[in-house]
Design a binder for these strands. Sequence first.
DNA 1: TGTACATCAGTGAACGCGCGTTCACTGATGTAC
DNA 2: TGTACATCAGTGAACGCGCGTTCACTGATGTAC
Lengths: 198, 198
Amino acid sequence: MRYGRNHKAETRARIVDIAAARFRRDGVNGVGIQSLMADAGLTHGGFYAHFPSKDHLVAEAVRAGFEQTAAFLARMVAEAAPAERFRAFLDAYLSEQHRAHMERGCVGAALAPELARMGPAVKGSFKAGLLRIVDLIADILPDGGTPDARRDRALTIFAMLMGAVQLARTVDDPDLAAAALAGAREQAFSAAAMPWGR
Amino acid sequence: MRYGRNHKAETRARIVDIAAARFRRDGVNGVGIQSLMADAGLTHGGFYAHFPSKDHLVAEAVRAGFEQTAAFLARMVAEAAPAERFRAFLDAYLSEQHRAHMERGCVGAALAPELARMGPAVKGSFKAGLLRIVDLIADILPDGGTPDARRDRALTIFAMLMGAVQLARTVDDPDLAAAALAGAREQAFSAAAMPWGR
DNA sequence: TGTACATCAGTGAACGCGCGTTCACTGATGTAC
DNA sequence: TGTACATCAGTGAACGCGCGTTCACTGATGTAC
């Protein structure tokens, strides 16, 4: 073979990584195969040796994007003292850094409505990534509650944070953006501290 | 003149209405001028007699979409007894109807991240529409708190509801979608009932 | 050890198509004389 | 009252461009003999 044993797998992984960033930054519809492959230092024709279609790449990129975010958040949480973990999570997710850098941020906050219009493979990828983040949140919620109740609360907290980051990004008003992030922070603490059960 | 006095204004309003629905359904990038004008029963060339660019239409459509949603929600709220107004609002926003019909639903839930990538005119339109919905929520929150505190809480509740609807639309799993809507409903009640102030 | 061949990641031209935008034109009407 | 003209919403061809996808080809390598 012309290239090393892992060459093709490495190229593929590089395309997925670049796509995960570009899709979040410009939207799935805003990124063409040609421009994507050029970013990877390749020509567009080679794309179909790696993926059967753009949709397949989107599913992979969604998976990869959630993986990056989950790994980053898990690290932030692990570095904090147990009692500070939820706070560390909120600080990371609701940070000005996150608001300002769609391309490295949460896939949900950058792409959710656009992915809602796509096929089942992409949606399946989204669901898996979402549940990963939700599990991460459920693990750092105060003790108590059934696993289902913990997951449901984590899911709602995630919806709130994701929505707040989107609003902060869309308003073009630094004060209102800051209010959206700060408000979500406060309500997330309240929601986490609510007693369990009826 | 060939047409009635209000003919042009009516045609313009029709284009905006159709755009407001199509953009929410297919995404701003997913709708071309040609297809939009065809939906209005016109040819694409006439578009630029009404709008200087597609971006200008997007700003108008965002305004119109929020107007529709605000009017609908205001009606739902007005039809309920005062003590039931917040519940009526949540029932409408978190309904299966809303999840299933992006094209007639909240602009934020359908387009927020895509609008975050657009210019200041669109973002200004978004901010105005957002504040309209937020004011509507602030008005039906339990008494108490400063106007700013009420607005901030309404903003966060809106972020939570918007995020929940987006997640419910994106997961392709009816149970998880229902859990997202139900969880947001529960947490929204808790958030609304929280005591005011420090 | 040297030569012929198979492999295959990547190339780049080409497919049909739709994009946003421009512009010379149409044709039904109201107005001027 | 009848005719010529101005108005202008809408038409449709055309602009250059990028889209997703296909495919015959390149050329450096490993393998077979």
